[in-house]
Amino acid sequence: MGKRFDSIDEKLRSWIEAQPMWFVATAPLSAEGHVNLSPRGHDTFSVLDEHRVAWVDYTGSGVETISHIRENGRVCLMFNSFDSRPRIVRLHGTGSVALLGDPAFDEVVALHPEHQSTRAVIIVDVTRISDSCGWGVPVMEMTGERDLLRLQAEKKGVDGMAEYRVEKNSMSIDGLPGLIT
């Protein structure tokens, strides 16, 4: 049976920040739109306070999370343990997008290693926190982070990354605005 939390206390914060991978789910308002579920990793996630979290969003092949959050704000983050103690924690809330030049962008980016692929910061005001057993999640071992995003960003350079974002991140698969260029 799952448990609800009133806030992200130090114990829960420590557990969340120890997870090497987590997931973010969003959806557009339109019933014809596509639900998006993305895995995340690297040192990108921060618990800002008891009801506020954020992450550094790297350039990817799509822009669904940003588009959906800009349209309606709805977001669910899921963290699960892959070690011997099973556990799943979900953070539901309302998200916002901060871009370069926004004080919130600078605040969150400063908490993490510099990465040339950084395109935005997502901030979530958490309204519901729950956990569940995770008994069906396999036990797996973390062997390391992939370095492909950094290598691609270095190869493309600043101008190449900007061009890539215009090409791939201007609009979601459902035609919603993505990154404003």
Rank of each mutant, 00 (worst) to 15 (best):
V63Y: 05
F5S: 06
V56M: 01
E163I: 06
Q19M: 07
L37T: 07
R150S: 10
G178V: 02
E154W: 00
H115F: 00
W55G: 01
W22D: 10
G93F: 00
R165Y: 04
F23N: 03
A104E: 12
K3V: 14
E71D: 09
G73Q: 10
T94Y: 09
P39Q: 03
T44S: 15
F82W: 14
P86A: 13
A98R: 11
V35T: 08
I88K: 09
E163G: 09
I173K: 13
S61L: 12
T143L: 15
S172C: 06
V53L: 00
H68A: 08
T26N: 07
K11N: 15
S14L: 10
V53T: 11
R40S: 04
V109R: 13
D83F: 04
V108E: 02
G157P: 04
E107G: 00
I173T: 05
N80D: 12
V139M: 11
G33D: 00
N80P: 05
R52T: 13
K11Y: 02
L37G: 00
H42D: 15
M171L: 14
P103K: 00
H34F: 12
P138M: 10
S117A: 15
G62C: 03
M161I: 14
G144L: 15
H112D: 05
D102G: 02
G60E: 00
H34L: 15
V108T: 09
V35C: 11
M78S: 14
K156T: 03
W135N: 14
A98I: 08
V97Q: 06
T65L: 15
R74I: 05
A54Q: 03
A110T: 07
L179A: 12
S67V: 08
S130G: 11
M171P: 04
D57R: 01
P39I: 02
E163D: 14
G144E: 06
A25K: 01
G62E: 07
